[in-house]
Computed example of a mutant assay.
Amino acid sequence: MTRLSILDLAPIVSGGDARQALANTLDLARTAEAAGYHRYWLAEHHFTPGVASSAPAVLIGAVAAATSTIRVGSGAVQLGHQTALGVVEQFGTLDALHPGRIDLGLGRSGQRAKEFRAAADAPPPPPQEARVVDGLLIPKPFSFASIANKSIFTLWAQLLQQPGAEAPDFAEQVDDIRAFIAGTYRSAEGVEAHVNPGEGAELELWILGSSGGQSAQVAAERGLPFAANYHVSPSAVLEAVEAYCDAFKPSELHAKPHVMVSADVVVAETEALARRIAAPYGLWVRSIRTGDGAIPFPTPEEALAHEWSPEDRELVADRLDTQFVGTPAQVVERLRVLRDVTGADELLVTTITHDHADRVRSAELLGRAWKELS
Score class of each variant (00 low, 15 high):
4 L>D: 11
5 S>Y: 08
12 I>L: 05
16 G>C: 07
17 D>K: 00
25 T>E: 08
45 H>R: 00
46 H>I: 01
59 L>R: 04
59 L>V: 01
60 I>R: 01
68 S>C: 10
70 I>L: 04
78 Q>H: 04
87 V>H: 05
92 G>I: 01
94 L>S: 08
100 G>C: 13
115 E>H: 06
117 R>G: 15
120 A>C: 06
129 E>Y: 05
134 D>H: 12
138 I>L: 15
145 A>N: 03
147 I>N: 05
149 N>I: 01
150 K>A: 10
151 S>H: 06
152 I>C: 02
155 L>S: 09
156 W>P: 02
157 A>M: 00
170 F>D: 07
170 F>Q: 10
171 A>R: 14
181 I>W: 03
182 A>P: 06
190 G>A: 10
198 G>D: 05
203 L>K: 00
206 W>R: 02
207 I>T: 03
214 Q>G: 10
215 S>L: 04
216 A>F: 11
216 A>V: 05
224 L>T: 01
225 P>W: 03
229 N>H: 10
237 V>N: 08
238 L>K: 07
242 E>N: 11
242 E>L: 07
247 A>F: 04
261 V>I: 13
263 A>R: 09
264 D>F: 13
274 A>R: 00
276 R>N: 04
279 A>W: 03
280 P>K: 06
281 Y>R: 08
290 T>R: 14
294 A>L: 06
296 P>F: 15
298 P>C: 05
299 T>G: 11
313 R>P: 02
314 E>F: 06
320 L>K: 04
330 Q>S: 12
332 V>P: 08
335 L>M: 04
343 G>Y: 06
359 R>E: 02
370 W>V: 05
372 E>I: 01
